[in-house]
């Protein structure tokens, strides 16, 4: 992404006007709308079921983590997070391998197949999951892959492949050609060029792509709910859904469960914020 500072400049002298305060208010109201349901969840996660029923806006009387430890145990979140990590790792490894190799082929255009492949993956962006989910379900049954979190991770990576490919392609395009040429003159073959020269340069791009694939597969619902059908291989999201089904009468458990789902995502996002935002922006911004 271009790092010009146009965003920084036009604001000069625009502060402390009425319009400025209206603008800030609009942005703050939007922020409150985004956070309002989540803030309510956090507040209520420290309360008992009856306290929540009485008034969802009352402040908690005590801040103990009892709700959390109870919910973690009863919802089997430990098992759920392990499954989520397995599924997400499998999706990331598959997705990064396939998108970086294909991204390189599409960026260098040294073989004529780049054109049909580009068109295929552009079209694949628009294929609804339902178009291939039914036969995939039958194949998973036939191959005894139902409930296999690694296999489901690979399927999720396949479904979400086009975007990472085009994202990787933009990173490969930024690699100076001269660098590659110099390595070739020194006698390196294509695989050496790719692994020793190019991969180290595009590694920020690989981390970005991994973040985006990770986000999609961690949160994925339709494929996981279809292909994982016994409780012991449920991912964290399905464990939480299951908890909502069986404990819908106990609001404090649901609230604590929601916080358990929110915290890891927000922490990971804050740590890798730059990568996430770069990935989203580069995946969609033309130019």
């Amino acid at each position: 992404m271009k790092s010009n500072t146009s965003l920084m400049r036009p604001g000069r002298g625009r502060k402390r006007t009425a319009a400025f305060f209206i603008a800030v208010s609009v942005l703050v109201i939007l922020a409150l709308i985004s956070l309002f349901p989540l803030a309510l969840v956090v507040i209520n996660s420290f309360k008992s079921h009856t306290q929540i029923m009485l008034n969802p806006f009352s402040w908690p009387t005590s801040f103990s983590f009892e709700n959390y430890t109870y919910t973690w145990k009863i919802g089997k979140f430990g098992e759920g997070f392990v499954n989520s990590i397995k599924l997400t790792s499998s999706a990331i490894i598959t997705g990064v391998l396939c998108s970086s190799t294909m991204g390189y082929v599409l960026a260098t255009r040294r073989v004529k197949t780049w054109r049909p492949l580009t068109l295929y993956f552009l079209l694949a962006t628009t294929v609804p999951l339902q178009m291939f989910m039914l036969p995939l379900y039958s194949s998973f049954v036939d191959l005894h892959l139902m409930g296999n979190v690694y296999a489901v991770g690979i399927a999720i990576a396949a479904w979400n492949l086009p975007m990472p490919i085009f994202l990787m392609r933009t990173y490969f395009l930024k690699v100076p050609y001269e660098l590659e040429e110099a390595a070739r003159i020194d006698g390196a073959n294509t695989f050496h060029v790719l692994t020793r020269v190019i991969m180290p340069i595009v590694s920020p791009g690989i981390i970005t792509v991994a973040c985006i694939i990770g986000l999609f597969s961690w949160n994925e619902y339709l494929l996981t709910t279809t292909l994982l059908q016994s409780e012991d291989n449920f991912t964290a999201t399905l464990k939480f859904l299951n908890l909502n089904g069986t404990f819908s009468r106990d609001f404090s458990v649901i609230m604590a469960g929601a916080v358990i789902m929110i915290i890891p995502m927000v922490v990971v996002f804050l740590l890798l914020q730059k990568r996430f935002i770069e990935g989203m922006a580069n995946g969609a911004v033309k130019g």
């Binding site: 294909m102 073989v111 993956f121 399927a155 294509t190």
Partner: peptide, 18 residues
Amino acid sequence: PYHLLSLPAVLLSGSIVL
């Protein structure tokens, strides 16, 4: 090498989507 590099994505998308 370029055709070989195309393989992982083609095989993955071919078998699971196409």
